[in-house]
Design a protein around this nucleic acid. Structure first.
Lengths: 160, 160
DNA sequence: CCAAACCCGACTGAACCAGTCGGGTTTTTA
DNA sequence: TAAAAACCCGACTGGTTCAGTCGGGTTTGG
């Protein structure tokens, strides 16, 4: 699993899509504008996302992209794997280049790390991200209201 | 934290060093030969490792490198950070490029991932790797002995 | 039919990786 | 004191990926 801005762009774009697909297909031009990602680059990314069946496309005017599944069923790991192509073995491909005794030592280390990363990203779906963010917004809003009530009951104007 | 073969080379080399430093400084030429890493490349890596005070150098004939601390006090995370230079912010540098509402959603995701990776690699030292590997070797040896005893007591030759 | 949208392959400049090269400097030993 | 062993260092290179561009399609609603 490679980690680059490419994967981050893809997640950002998918998030934008997830938040807007309620009112029909979302255009890449829109995502491009809102997220400041070049349109052509988005086309490349969504080509891959479509081939991996994470999104579906609707051609022609009024078209755009939709999620192929519910936001809770699309994990961040899937999105990143879709756009950051394999580059096959992330380390010594299982057989070659790591010989003698040192082999297994580092081998276990890297495969363990890979698993940790993959598990972490597999546990997060687009839905999770949206939920968490909405919960945070709600907490912020409540804090704001609490602060106002406190201020009003104290009857003191804000210090500068 | 970037993850590349550069960091893996560095860990492999440091492991080789840790296993051999008992009998004095270890030469890069030796590591190069045993681990099949180009000497000049090793020089680059060890230059960085030295500047980060993970190894100490002894110049002149009979010289080489030693660990600057005990193997248990040098973590894999330190080694990787030493050779894979910062490349500053692994994501939107804290302030820029992630604007509107989407910002925090992906921001928390990436910083969380960074922490997971870093924690995982910080929990592993050169000493850990060596210990684990030796434990595994011991288990293998015991299994071999058990198998032999079993075979002898049964008195049957191995089936092809 | 036209325009909006997707679709696609080829190209580019910059960065980084992995490695090379050609020189140093320091220190031991013969 | 000279040679050799080792570290030290900066400049260079070829290949790959990234991020983005360009120029063309094809599909389809109005």
């Amino acid at each position: 699993m490679r980690l680059t801005t490419k994967g981050r762009f893809a997640v950002t774009a998918m998030l934008d899509l997830a938040l807007r697909e309620a009112n029909g297909p979302v255009t890449l031009a829109g995502i491009s504008e809102r997220q400041h990602i070049s349109l052509s680059y988005l086309e490349q990314l969504f080509g891959k996302l479509r081939r991996r069946e994470l999104v579906e496309s609707v051609r022609g005017p009024g078209g755009g992209y939709c999620l192929a599944r519910a936001a809770h069923d699309i994990t961040v790991a899937e999105i990143i794997c879709a756009v950051d192509e394999p580059l096959d073995a992330t380390q010594c491909g299982g057989k070659e280049n790591c010989r003698d005794e040192h082999r297994c030592m580092t081998h276990d280390l890297w495969s363990g790390l890979n698993r940790v990363i993959y598990d972490h990203l597999s546990a997060v779906s687009l839905g999770t991200l949206i939920d968490e963010h909405q919960a945070k917004q709600k907490r912020r809003a409540e804090a704001l209201i609490d602060a106002r009530i406190l201020k009003e009951s104290a009857g003191t104007p804000a210090a500068h």
